[in-house]
Every structure is written in structure tokens, then in C-alpha cells.
Nucleic acid binder design. Structure first.
Lengths: 223, 223
DNA sequence: TTAAATTTTTAGACTAATCTAAAAATTAAT
DNA sequence: ATTAATTTTTAGATTAGTCTAAAAATTTAA
């Protein structure tokens, strides 16, 4: 139980969470160095440390992924960040573009009691001032209302949260083309004639989908 | 202008401010080590650093005193600490004995905009939940109502904030026995028969005062 | 007023987080 | 399928803050 993270460790965990488009996707050393404004060598060292603490999975030269406990920590930090942003905007009259930097500091304050009371004080909001969802005390995210993939246009993106229809033939087809719940998806192109789509799936590249399929897939806004 | 203090430096400055009963009194290395739960050797090193930054005055083997800029920093930290405590108790329903540890973290958040907006949000309180005064944005402390030294009883203490009477003979006498404004004073004993008092003055030791004198001296609660 | 006790400082070392420069592994390109 | 370019890791140093042990200065007490 004696495992409270340092400020630096928290920042690494959060960055890994935010860079990884899906929980499975590997985050590269360079991407992390860029995001944290530090050098790849530094990241390499820290990765070893976090890996040793079992917060991330790591294979040399292959990037990192959060473990279950790592993801839990990330969600706690994001929860705090977004609750504080809500406080700053809703009660201290900050503009929504002024709160990020301050919330970056406040997110590291350690006291679950404080976070939960703040949550209550704010009326248990589900989204922050930027519209991003606020994880609850258990790390659960209330995803926004989902819509059909077929209703989306180019450049829109989100994560796959469900299928409208349980037809085994459809589900088997989706399995075959590697579409599954939780995947990040972005619409690349929509064909005006038959509404077929070109989409990009995290880590799985480009795919063509007919309207018959896109009209069965539910998408929600990503974290 | 590039002189933002580290968390550790802030804690040293605050401890020096709080241990020194008066702005002039020297704070010893050991007292600081005790207060900060560290070792004298560590304090010795940090003292050199703070001295070099001109936040404190330091003479080897003679303890330290805050400089003007050091005192300003200390007041900023204390202001933040007490404002956050007020927020935690008045708006998040914490009990007054639960807020210190959390405020110890919150006091280090850097944003004067945040502090001032928080101050406004709280209605510009002048005391925190423990009755301690909250410095304003300029570091000015609104001292609580003063009372006569003659109205105090054993163990009560405070700082000398005024004299009721401007009689030169009285003032000269006070000068002679080293009593002056700003000094911390504690009542050691009160004589039931003639109301004369034994008092302890910061750094000046014990003194006997007749009721004629104690009834002229105004005391306010110390910081 | 000299000796003993205490306080403070110095010396040398350790850890966490960082850096630069160079080596090693992977990926891309001819 | 080699070579070139890129990415990642290692090696060796650096800084802030800390420690222990020992030396030096100050204070207290016989």
C-alpha cells in the first residue's frame, strides 16, 4: 500500500494515458519525451522505474502500455484535473482557456476525501468546462450520448461503444475485420453515392465499410 | 524576476517565519531541523542557499532572520494556507481539525490570480477557521481586537500593539525596560493582591510590571 | 576559567530526476 | 538485402535535497 506516486511519476502516467489512443496501443519513448518536454534518455530511465512498479508494461524498443493499476492512477489524476477546472470556471469565474495550467498543479494534491467532497460541492458534474468527461470515484467514465457511425462525417472521431444489432453474422464479420468495442475510430472519407466510408482504426490502419455496417455501429466521444 | 521558490524553500521560509516570535528574533538551526523534520546538517546547507538568495540574514552559529523579501514570501504562503483552510471548512464541510494537512499542499499552488479570486469567492475573510488572521494581498494582517495587558491571565500571550496613553514618562519608562510595539509577550504570573504581573518577553526574558503599567499596554493575538 | 555539553558546520556520500554524447537496435529505402 | 535514417537505450555527469559521521564553535557549568 505504500505506493504514492511522485509528481513526476504522475505526469508520466497521465501522458501515457493521454497519448495512447486505445488502452492497448503502445506509446513510444519519443512521443513521451515530446509530450513531457524532456529527453528520450530521461524517458527511457523513468520507463524502467514505472515498469518495475508494475504501472506499465514495457518491452525494449517497443513502447509502453498502462497496466490496470497504471490506468487507475491515470484516471484518478484526470478526474482531479477536470474537477478542479470545473471549480475554477464555475466558482472562481476563470475563463475556460485560463484554467489548464492551474489545474495541472491542483491535480497532484493528494487527498481522496478532498476530491470527493469537491465533486459533491460541484454537484457531481460529468463533463468539465471543455466538454471532456469526468471519471467518477471508481474511474468510470460517463460517456456522452452515442451516435451511429453512419451519421458521422469526415474527420469526426470517437470510440466504438456498441452495435445496434446482435445479428451473429454482423458480429462475426466485425470480428473478422478486427472491429471491436473500445477502439478509436476516425472517419477519413464518406462516399456521397452509397454512403460507404473510409475509416481509420487505431493501430489497424484504414478500412472501407458499407452503409449496411456503418449504420449498426455506435460511436461515442473519446476521452 | 526569475525567482520562484521551490516547495522545499517555501517550507523553510514558512518555518522560519512561524518559529521566530518576532521579526527580529534569530531562529536556530536545530529549531528549524525539528520543525521541518530533518537534520541540522541539511538545514545548514539550505540556510546557505536561502541566504545567498537574500531571503534570510545569516551569521554562522547565530541563527537566521527573514529579510524583507523573505517575510513577504512567508506571508504569501500563510495567506494561501489560511484561505484554503477557509474554503475547505466553509464550502467542502471539512472539520477544522481535518484541514491542516491538505492546506499544507494547497499553499504551494502558484497563481496569484487564483489566490485573489479564492479570496473574493470566500468574501475576503480576515480570519481562518482557527481564528488566525489571513494576510491580505499586500501581506498586511488585520490584527484582531486588542485588549489591555491588565485584563489577561496566566499563560495568555499576544503581541504588543499599542499603549493607551501617550504620557512621555510612561513611554520613556517602557523604553528603559525594553518594551516596544511588536514584541511578543506572555503572562507568567498574576499577583492577586496588587494585580502586578510577571511576564515573559521574546528574547528579553522575564519582567515584573505593576498594574499601573499593565493597564496602559494593548495586546493583540499573535500571528 | 577551564572542562564538559551542546550546537552548528563541514566533509563525503546517496537518491531522484535530469542532461549530453555515444552505442545499439529497429525501421525505411534504395 | 544491405545501407541509411531513425529510434531507443546505455554510459557517465549534474543538480537539489537529503543523510551520517566527524570537526569546529559556542554555551554551560563546575
Amino acid at each position: 500500500m505504500e505506493n504514492s506516486l511522485s509528481l513526476t511519476e504522475e505526469n508520466y502516467i497521465k501522458a501515457i494515458f493521454q497519448i495512447g489512443t486505445t488502452p492497448e496501443s503502445n506509446v513510444s519513448t519519443n512521443a513521451l519525451a515530446d509530450s513531457l518536454q524532456t529527453k528520450p534518455a530521461t524517458v527511457s530511465d523513468m520507463i524502467k522505474k514505472l515498469s518495475h512498479k508494475k504501472l506499465i508494461f514495457y518491452e525494449k524498443y517497443k513502447g509502453v502500455t498502462l497496466s490496470a493499476s497504471g490506468a487507475k492512477e491515470a484516471l484518478k489524476i484526470i478526474r482531479k484535473h477536470r474537477l478542479w477546472e470545473a471549480f475554477l470556471v464555475n466558482h472562481l469565474n476563470f475563463k475556460w482557456d485560463q484554467v489548464h495550467e492551474i489545474a495541472e498543479q491542483l491535480e497532484h494534491i493528494k487527498s481522496s476525501e478532498l476530491v470527493n467532497r469537491l465533486d459533491d460541492f460541484l454537484g457531481n458534474p460529468t463533463i468539465d468546462p471543455h466538454g471532456d468527461p469526468i471519471p467518477d470515484a471508481n474511474g468510470q467514465v460517463q460517456l456522452g450520448p452515442s451516435k451511429l457511425l453512419s451519421e458521422m462525417t469526415s474527420y469526426e472521431n470517437g470510440i466504438i461503444v456498441g452495435v445496434k444489432n446482435e445479428d451473429p453474422l454482423l458480429l462475426q464479420h466485425l470480428d473478422k475485420i478486427n472491429i471491436r468495442l473500445g477502439l478509436h475510430i476516425e472517419v477519413t472519407e464518406v462516399n456521397d453515392f452509397d454512403q460507404s466510408m473510409q475509416v481509420k482504426l487505431a493501430d489497424l490502419g484504414t478500412l472501407f465499410l458499407s452503409e449496411k455496417i456503418t449504420s449498426q455501429i455506435l460511436i461515442a466521444k473519446n476521452l
